[in-house]
Design a protein around this nucleic acid. Structure first.
Lengths: 246, 246
DNA sequence: TAGATTGTTAATCGATTAACAATC
DNA sequence: TAGATTGTTAATCGATTAACAATC
């Protein structure tokens, strides 16, 4: 860690005016007004910063990063500044420090515990992927209704009977439920989850879920949507190229 | 098909002014200026329309749809109008007709053929899912380097040796390559794909791919990003709730 | 015809980019 | 100090919403 970085560690005692304190609070990682557009870009910064760390770089400017990521340097500076002044003039950003900050913001290191509900193809593939470990999420249990898998382990994770859902979620202090079961059961299982202490649902069922209360946040995933936009572009290209050639 | 619907079948011969023809062309499904924000919403319309068809409804208004989908009716009308006047005043939209149109726009029914490159957990899970069939995409081949899977079938799809990639893609007239191999090989395989006749790449490797030419379009998928935005929201909620309770 | 609901324009809102003063 | 690059404001651009005339 360079000396330069230490400037970023808040010298809180020195700045005491109301205005200054307001400023600190407003720059807090969790101030609620950060726009969704910015939030959705943060994981991409996370990925690129890991890449840059792997490359052994310790310092990066918004201009460099903008070239790597194909976005404007302006946007990068604007985005990062929503959460605080992570860089310094004339120098750029300390890569490790910035990565640490992004991780903090994204809850990496909160030690979130997840459970996969539905031990079919998708659930099994997910649980075996290194994705969770990279992001500091611990998959602690799986659930299914089939006697063929209950009691077995998939990857390193034990599969429990769906009827033990509530008790096991409590036992393992699960924060996040990952739904990889057929869409027919989505609503029913979501209702059961609503009675537990979980905080988030990562929903792959295809049936969109929402709760009245904001106690549980839901992220609905539709990979098929991404396939369709690809097909749109492919079809558009073919159409346009046909127009040119023939 | 109701009489009402027939109005939507272009009475092309009746309108002959330059202006009118311009208008038709500009309303063509593939006019290039449709904004990315609209395109990204189309697959969601596709999903909800299927749902509505399953429910047996034949007619839907933008107001109804807006309630189901949690978006404004204004946005729905605006979005659909990018591609043509699919509804009619005082009636709403004929569900089957609208669905047909959305399918056309998204290339469902173009008979696209796809190949999965990488027969690991993710590739195997994808190929077994009903996602492709629903969207009119035919998965015709898989590829891998491991002798354990080469020659076998996963789901209904045969796994070929990676060294036969180019010849088999040609043999099967593959349009779309689906990359589910380790990110270390992404660049190398993308380069090989660049020499073939494929039109699109659906890239799950985590290593972002792009081509100079726009002959091949790429859709980079990062499901981990979605997990991270969920974690952000969960962490934010916890932080805010702590602030309230304690 | 009266009622309903689209297509479309204009107004608002939010997100991105450009520019530059602050400052390391 | 001079050079570099951030943080931040103002300008631009794009996307969403409101409103209503057109019309089925």
């Amino acid at each position: 860690m360079s000396v330069k970085q230490e400037r970023n560690e808040a010298p809180v005692e020195d700045i005491l005016s109301e205005e200054a304190i307001e400023n600190i609070i407003s720059k807090n990682s969790f101030r609620p007004e950060v726009s969704p557009a910015v939030i959705k870009r943060l994981p991409r910064y996370f990925r690129y910063l890991r890449e840059i760390i792997r490359m052994g770089k310790t310092r990066v400017s918004s201009a460099e990063l903008s070239r790597m990521m194909n976005v404007t340097a302006s946007q990068i500076r604007q985005d990062l500044n929503c959460f605080g002044g992570f860089g310094q003039q004339g120098y750029g950003y300390n890569v490790n420090y910035l990565y640490t900050k992004i991780c903090e913001i994204l809850g990496v290191g909160c030690g979130f515990r997840a459970a996969v509900i539905g031990a079919g193809n998708l659930g099994s593939a997910l649980v075996r992927s290194p994705m969770f470990e990279k992001r500091g999420v611990d998959v602690v249990a799986m659930f299914d209704v089939s006697q063929n898998v209950i009691g077995k382990k998939i990857g390193n994770v034990k599969v429990y009977d769906m009827s033990d859902l509530e008790s096991k979620l409590k036992e393992y202090s699960v924060n996040i439920a990952i739904l990889t079961l057929p869409k027919e059961y989505a609503t029913e299982v979501a209702a059961r989850l609503g009675t537990t202490d979980i905080s988030g649902i990562w929903n792959f069922t295809g049936k969109e879920i929402s709760f009245d209360s904001d106690r549980i946040v839901v992220e609905n995933v539709h990979i098929g949507d991404s396939l369709m936009t690809l097909c749109y572009e492919v079809a558009k290209n073919m159409y346009q190229n046909n127009g040119r050639d023939q």
